[in-house]
């Protein structure tokens, strides 16, 4: 008893330190990179919250829901519309993007509440993303239709974030908040309820977990985090158009959490890094990019069915996902 309790405390301290040490080590990055490389790193940071939110629904709740690209687009368009149509600064548009993502999450949870599961749920939630794309294309006065919308440069409290380096620091902060907040939720009765629902819904209910309420909560939290990723995407790209939120995008996001590791916060981060940055490393080999990228994904899924995060978890308990505060 005594011993395991102190082990737990030590682990908690180490993991809290990692959350500060890694970002601090990343701080000088803009000094070392050219603007294009910095752009790629920023894109990685965009995909971290996108993956974290997706992973809460698919990996933790265990529901095969493909509504993630809808949350991503809704976050991006919410930020874009508020900036272009209402003239709000970018940073003011971030919380509404999260809020709209959460609302979209609640809406996307409805089929699951009716007992729709597996492939049926996958198809119904896939339709949500396609429906949203129809809205982006048709709601021309607001979304700019197929041509999309050019966005003004983002800013933070009046400071222009025109440079890639400026975006990097703001994104790093947002990603850190998303990781810490999600970690706090997952390591509580809420996160345990999510995984309990994945393991055995009947048993979860028998332990007093109101399963439907928690399914909606998981979707809402996932949607909110992904919505922030959408707002970051809007700031990074500076232009929104419907093809950015199509099925190919969804498959990319799914690949991130599969390769990183389902149900793992660490996995979401690793997956975002690998899948977003890997194509850049294959630039030297034109024509083979897609091939090498495809082989990489197949190898990971074949030999590490629980993702790259499972490798790290085996190497050090720090990377194991915990759902208690022992």
């Amino acid at each position: 008893m005594q011993r395991s309790a102190s082990d737990g405390a030590a682990r908690a301290v180490v993991s809290r330190r990692v959350l500060w040490i890694v970002p601090i080590l990343l701080l000088p990055l803009p000094l070392l990179l050219n603007p294009y490389q910095q752009y790629v790193i920023n894109l990685v940071l965009v995909y971290v919250p996108v993956a974290i939110g997706f992973n809460v629904v698919v990996g933790n709740l265990g529901l095969l829901a493909f509504s993630n690209v809808a949350f991503f687009g809704i976050g991006a368009y919410t930020a874009g519309i508020l900036m272009v149509r209402l003239g709000l600064p970018w940073w003011v548009a971030v919380p509404p993007a999260a809020l709209m993502g959460a609302v979209a999450g609640c809406a996307a949870s409805v089929p699951a509440l009716r007992g729709v599961r597996l492939f049926y749920l996958a198809i119904m939630t896939l339709a949500f993303g396609e429906l949203m794309r129809w809205v982006y294309i048709r709601w021309i006065p607001v979304t700019g239709g197929s041509f999309g919308m050019a966005l003004p440069p983002p800013d933070l409290f009046g400071w222009s974030l025109d440079s890639e380096a400026g975006k990097f620091y703001v994104f790093l902060g947002l990603v850190l908040v998303a990781i810490i907040a999600t970690d706090r939720i997952l390591r509580s009765r809420f996160g345990r309820a999510f995984v309990a629902i994945k393991s055995d819904e009947l048993a979860a209910a028998a332990m007093g977990v109101p399963t439907n309420r928690y399914i909606t909560l998981g979707f809402a939290w996932g949607g909110a985090v992904v919505g922030v990723g959408g707002a970051m995407y809007a700031a990074l790209i500076g232009h929104l158009s419907p093809p950015a939120f199509d099925l190919t995008e969804l498959i990319l996001e799914f690949a991130i959490i599969m390769v990183g590791g389902l149900g793992s916060l660490v996995g979401s981060v690793i997956g975002a890094v690998i899948i977003t940055a890997a194509p850049e490393f294959f630039h030297e080999l034109p024509g083979y990019q897609e091939l090498l990228f495809g082989i990489l994904i197949v190898l990971v899924i074949l030999f590490l069915p629980r993702g790259l995060a499972s490798l790290l978890a085996r190497a050090h308990p720090l990377f194991r996902d915990r759902y208690d505060r022992g």
């Binding site: 309990a196 393991s199 055995d200 048993a203 332990m207 022992g326």
Partner: peptide, 13 residues
């Protein structure tokens, strides 16, 4: 039991 969780986490549920 919830197979994805530890014994302790099961009791916590």
């Amino acid at each position: 039991l919830f197979g994805h969780l530890t014994a302790l986490e099961n009791v916590l549920v």
